[in-house]
Design a protein around this nucleic acid. Structure first.
Lengths: 228, 228
DNA sequence: CGCCTGCCTGGCACGTTGTGCCAGGCAGGC
DNA sequence: GCCTGCCTGGCACAACGTGCCAGGCAGGCG
């Protein structure tokens, strides 16, 4: 479902790929070490050594050691926003959000195992959060950034002239729904693809309740102008 | 309005007062220095020296230098929760929230000037947040803690057996309303007590939209059992 | 082919952050 | 008066995070 991922990948560029690979490598080892020893029991140098880079390089990729897990938490945000921006015009803003949220949190399609793994590692991190304030801050910051990024996307979906405060509220509602759904799911043992108690089902339910009162009218479909 | 604050102050205890005084003193100087030089341009030692304590003592009060401003941001949270918990039984949960939010963000009553000053200093901090990620994290963490604290209060207001997820959503909605209202107000020049564009008016509007779909039935008034 | 430019990387030094530990001072209770 | 807590300051130290410079590896140009 959703558009082909290749659309948003114009130039991996070899060196770019190597950098992204390094970042993922660091993030993976950081998450593993954090889950095992707790964030306080791991030094930045430990992570750097495990990932096979120097301490100096580590700090070129991440500002703090806790930030190192952010890429794992960010996971599907890019795709989520892209799906949302490409929502068919006959869906209302609320419906488009629900659709995109469900797609983002349902691990199916060609990358099903990767996405399942991402959900599982997020769950692992969330379970390590209590007692690790710095880790909690990263989780909150990731969501704050997502909320920020949601605003322009929603602006594009909504009818021109919609009150900016409405758009911020819609972004906050969607974001809070995702966050609480993930936190609630992390506290259970449900499978990532459980259609009843999985993250997608929870998120849709949260989203409906939080956006019930938000008024963001959908843009009128442009007469004759095709998509993109 | 609301109950007498003395109800929740059983024992200042002299030493306690001195500690609270020190904490406020540090927080005040930290906020002033941050607003002037930016958080990155101030060391923990600067704050400690300005507040007249040793560096060691500073770190006994706050875990990081950015945390030093948290008490100013927390401001009326304690009173807000107390007001909410004491809401009259004839109000629905949503109405009680709205009532408490309005009371918390409307600077009137005997402490009007102190509360106005708190709102103004929060606005000053919020304006310094862009470009200071660590400061932003504190703002987010304060709200996360408030949201956490809201859950048991709402549990007390709601009918027994209400789905915990509903309570979390209500807490998140109230919290997001407060946060976005403050952020939106901080971006304006409106007076703290402006009945149209002040924080209270914005927060009530945000709250109504975000809680429109949340279903948390109010507890039945206990027949015959008096207050407290 | 050799060179030059740009970028990523590692190593080093350094100021800052944050904590453990111990000693000194100031309150309240036997 | 003494003893017990508790808060405070000073010191030492590991860890954090950054500026700076040198080395290696790609691609563009004569």
């Amino acid at each position: 479902m959703s558009s082909h991922p290749e659309e948003t990948v114009p130039r991996p560029s070899l060196t770019e790929r190597r950098k992204a690979e390094t970042e993922r490598e660091i993030a993976r080892h950081a998450a593993e070490l954090f889950s095992e020893h707790g964030a306080a029991g791991v030094t930045a140098e430990d992570i750097a050594r495990a990932a096979g880079v120097s301490l100096r390089t580590f700090y070129r990729y991440f500002r703090t050691k806790e930030e190192a897990v952010a890429p794992l938490l960010t996971g599907g945000v890019r795709q989520w926003l892209a799906d949302l921006a490409a929502a068919p015009a006959e869906l209302s803003v609320t419906q488009a959000l629900e659709h995109a949220v469900r797609a983002a949190l349902t691990p199916d399609g060609p990358y099903a195992d990767i996405r399942t793994e991402a959900l599982e590692s997020t769950r692992g991190l969330l379970r390590a959060v209590p007692g690790e304030p710095a880790l909690h801050s990263v989780w909150l910051r990731v969501h704050a950034e997502t909320e920020e990024a949601l605003v322009p996307v929603l602006t594009g979906l909504a009818r021109e002239g919609t009150d900016p405060l409405e758009l911020r509220l819609a972004a906050a509602a969607a974001n809070a729904a995702m966050r609480i759904a993930m936190e609630a799911w992390a506290a259970t043992e449900a499978e990532p693809d459980d259609p009843e108690r999985g993250p997608a089902a929870l998120a849709v339910r949260c989203l409906r309740e939080l956006t019930a009162g938000v008024r963001t009218p959908r843009a009128q479909p442009l007469p004759g102008a095709g998509g993109l």
